[in-house]
Design a protein around this nucleic acid. Structure first.
Lengths: 250, 250
DNA sequence: ACAAAAGTGTTACCCTTACACCCATGT
DNA sequence: ACATGGGTGTAAGGGTAACACTTTTGT
């Protein structure tokens, strides 16, 4: 019973063997923020029910960094995306089950260690593109994830933890929000990532005190209530402030 | 001009090819604390002047975790060491220069990505062991590092940064200090890792307030001055406190 | 006597938390 | 009117930073 995915992999196997490093794969947890909720980009492989993180392999003549950026561009069409390598997953049987029905000499069936990255991307500029192995490429709400293949749920969970730890050290807001955003939108983003409610007045004051926001002479029209003010990040000041972290002691 | 290292590598090449995963190496930044200073374990390869981090390769049937522990055990004789994988280094030319005079079909000359770990180890229980490729294996003061091969200085610097960030989240003191230690010793450790002087009284109060230390009915005899009290960590409370981090807001 | 260690006190300052109040504005 | 947003006030509490003082004790 040879299905589409099977045929494609068998056909491509020799080419991969020639041009890509063995044993190494790259997986990306791509975060986007939209409609007051945090989403992650997932693929559904052909002939499977489970979903997976966008990923790929490293070319023999390619820096690790460049490989991750290339893979991301293929799936989203976007370039210069904020990418952070956060952990490498190397359990020996992490993909055994998935490939159990494939031929042993298939390049893809070898053992891989996966170098995991998370990406932060402006939801609005992404155009999800399926690849030749997939039949769907969609944004999924992080609180309603479908079942994931292999150890991709572990990878996702680690990415979310890392994102939380990075909130004061990396330009998370700058990369997840559109250029112009409102204070309630920014607060919502923080609340989702930190998984806790924050006090509105205190959040406003804290953000203002950092002096990393620039208030624009515009409001977000069209809502059901008072039009909120629009802000954008002062990128220079934001990044300067992140170098020492937005708060903390020692 | 075939030197010792050259001969050993050529001889072992086929065996490595058979039993180890290609393209993947593991490097360890091993920290130890002794004599009020932080040290790192380095090897000097045969026929070279530069030093390098202890490292090795991943066996085909071995979890990544297990591989790092095995490599560490070979170099230190110690087991169950605190190990933290912190970054993977994958520039395409990271080892090109080092192997330029070696034959192209040498297993070791292929391109590697290196999965870097840092280890925290009780200096007193380590017995540095040279491997077959090396002529020295020694502790070096982190402020007086010799010249390092390839990108090992980058790896070391990243490890130190990561260690600093982890100070409130990982059992750093527990793993770097002997079982019994004094308050001034603990403070010194924090000062070196954070690279700043800390106020003695405030440090004492802060540590006491965490309730992670257990004061023993003993003092450290033999010093030139008043014998300081000995403490040990209350391991349970220490680890419980680290789960949320020793301080910080949001 | 001297120097390090232990323990405590003090003060100013900053930040957080939690509430509460005002006003503005779009439907 | 009502819900949301913007902006500010305040009081309690907790941690930090910096300094200083005391007592203890080993050489």
């Amino acid at each position: 019973m040879k299905n589409d995915l099977y045929k494609i992999l068998v056909e491509l196997s020799p080419n991969y063997k020639k041009n890509y490093l063995p044993s190494i794969s790259i997986d990306c947890v791509v975060f986007g923020f939209h409609d007051a909720s945090l989403k992650v980009l997932l693929l559904q492989l052909k002939n499977t029910t489970k979903w997976g993180l966008p990923g790929g392999y490293l070319k023999r003549d390619e820096d690790l960094n460049a490989g991750a950026n290339r893979i991301l561009k293929e799936r989203t069409g976007a370039e210069n995306i904020f990418l952070n390598q956060f952990k490498t997953f190397g359990k020996k049987n992490r993909s055994e089950e998935f490939f159990s029905d494939f031929p042993d000499d298939l390049w893809h069936k070898q053992r891989y260690i996966s170098i995991a990255h998370y990406a932060l991307i402006n939801f609005e500029i992404v155009n999800p593109v399926i690849d030749q192995f997939s039949e769907a490429c969609e944004w999924k709400e992080i609180s309603e994830l479908p079942e994931l293949m292999m150890d991709h749920e572990d990878i996702f969970n680690e990415a979310l933890l890392q994102l939380r730890r990075d909130l004061n050290y990396k330009p998370v807001g700058l990369n997840l929000l559109p250029e112009k955003f409102t204070m309630p939108e920014l607060q919502k983003l923080y609340e989702i990532i930190l998984d806790k409610k924050l006090n509105r007045g205190n959040f406003y004051r804290k953000m203002t005190r950092y002096e990393i926001l620039e208030k624009l002479n515009e409001t977000r029209k069209g809502g059901a209530h008072k039009a909120p003010d629009l802000y954008k990040f002062d990128e220079k000041k934001y990044k300067a402030a992140l170098k020492t972290g937005l708060q903390e002691s020692w």
